[in-house]
């Protein structure tokens, strides 16, 4: 799986972006495993969702544009989609956690609960 011959000026930044994106996604997943509290864990995957995905998508755009000899920027669609949707999932999960804590449905609750304020369910 070797890509077609790329000039060095494109290969270097693309490699840098790929390594950065990979490290950020790995960091997010490690944080998900390492923190001892759900309210801390919910912050970890945002790393992979924002800058990690952004780096990989930028690298993909750069490489396919150079390969095709014209701007290929349809990866912007995935970026837009992720930017619009991943906060929605996070917010819903946050409110679900607060709701379950407030109503005592979370029997196997996480350690060291912070004082959860009232939810604003409509």
């Amino acid at each position: 799986m070797t890509p077609a011959e790329l000039p060095l000026w494109a290969a270097l930044p693309a490699s840098l972006l790929l390594v950065t994106g990979g490290l950020l996604a790995l960091l997010g997943s490690i944080g998900l495993l390492r923190f001892n509290n759900f309210y801390a864990r919910i912050h970890a995957p945002t790393l992979a969702n924002t800058l990690g995905a952004g780096c990989v998508l930028l690298a993909s755009m750069l490489i396919s544009s150079v390969n095709a000899g014209r701007p290929v920027i349809h990866e912007i669609l995935i970026t837009l989609f992720l930017v619009l949707t991943s906060p929605v999932t996070t917010m819903l999960l946050m409110r679900a956690a607060m709701f379950r804590r407030a109503t005592g449905r979370d029997h196997k609750g996480t350690e060291a609960p912070p004082p959860a304020p009232e939810t604003d369910r409509p």
């Binding site: 919910i42 945002t46 619009l84 991943s86 906060p87 996070t90 917010m91 946050m94 409110r95 607060m98």
Partner: peptide
């Protein structure tokens, strides 16, 4: 809400319509 949640380290956790207060 999207800006706050997309920034790592902060999550929008609720909004009170009456007092216009963000959690």
């Amino acid at each position: 809400s999207i800006i706050i949640t997309a920034t790592p380290g902060t999550v929008w956790a609720g909004h009170d319509q009456d007092s216009n207060e963000l959690t």
